[in-house]
Design a protein around this nucleic acid. Sequence first.
DNA 1: CCAAACAGAATTGTCAACAATTTCGTCTGC
DNA 2: GCAGACGAAATTGTTGACAATTCTGTTTGG
Lengths: 216, 216
Amino acid sequence: MPKEARPSTGEQAKQHAFAQLRQAILHGEMAPAQRLVENELAEQFGVTRASIRAALIDLEAQGLVERIRNRGSRVRVVTVEEAVAITECRMVLEGLCAAKAAVAASDEQLTELADLGTAMTKAVADGEPMTYSELNQELHAKIRQYSGQQTALELLDRLNAQLVRHRFQLALRPGRPQHSLNEHLAMIEAVRARDPQAAEAAVRAHLTSVIEALRD
Amino acid sequence: MPKEARPSTGEQAKQHAFAQLRQAILHGEMAPAQRLVENELAEQFGVTRASIRAALIDLEAQGLVERIRNRGSRVRVVTVEEAVAITECRMVLEGLCAAKAAVAASDEQLTELADLGTAMTKAVADGEPMTYSELNQELHAKIRQYSGQQTALELLDRLNAQLVRHRFQLALRPGRPQHSLNEHLAMIEAVRARDPQAAEAAVRAHLTSVIEALRD
DNA sequence: CCAAACAGAATTGTCAACAATTTCGTCTGC
DNA sequence: GCAGACGAAATTGTTGACAATTCTGTTTGG
């Protein structure tokens, strides 16, 4: 096991370990339910166990890692039921963001949303589900951002982090992009029309359909 | 500075410190923006600095404590703006819970809600704002609980913990209990009628009014 | 008299070693 | 052949000491 990761210059060790571990989990490099032994991680990332420990505590708070007393840590497995519950929360919170974004967004920002819409349409037409999935992410992120609702933004970041695996599965399902495209376009239209209620309704309709798809 | 707190027998030191610190902050024993020096806390609670450190990381994740690199921790101060943003999130999440509770609650649970309603009415009639505030808390907690929505429950717990100070101020405002009582009774009625949409609307109406009151 | 540089103190970040707990394999006794 | 006790290995929890950083009050040069 060579220590490939550089100790990193000015960066604080714990932050480094935290970011590294988080990325590894989010990118699926750690198998679900894989055991995370503090000593191994410490050697792998070139930091001490104390830093790894602090990072694991943070990751537990973010819901990415599960820790049991005296038994160790492992990558948290999100069941389909949990994914549904999480998406329900996303539904109402993103609905709130969309309603606020419809009021608060600048004209330039609305134009960006429109551009994203055409890009998404193109991605579906070209049959590129991965590109579409990325644009999808970007759209949701932009709406959150434009809302100016800091608290909701933080909550949604945490919730989304827990859904990476399920999101992957969903994006590759045949026919799914075509279906969700219309819903996304409706969201964009409602926000651009500066209609808060319509925007919230559109987001809810979209995520309701995502929930149904999750329950395959 | 005598170390009054017993080291606690079987309890893990970190958990002990965490619970103790959390209670202290929530009960307002720590002044807002007060500095939290790890060494002092360690001696005060009779645990080592590492345990305090872990507890502080957890409390930061819960939004109760603010930590700055190499500068230390302090009790987080929630501005009115933040309180509004938090309550907006509460609004949509509790709306979700109420809608689900209207469907999922058992008949006995609905009876409990009705009893709570009469108790609240009595507390207002008797002019006991503190009792009313506690019943208020209990009502919101029960609705959350009956919804069976674990994710929303966790998010709401975190959000509510950040609002203790503002909640206090609001409860003692003259005329406020009378005003909110009707909204609470409407919530109870809608859930008892097993009408999800009405329940969500009632919760939203109530918390919208709370937001207006916050912006005094 | 004021601004910038400079020590000193206070505080957090990091480290390596030690103690406590759990798990898993083995062994004994029936 | 199997149930339960026993013990070794692995892993986490805890401790105290050390290093790095930041803040504060003072001093010095203009």
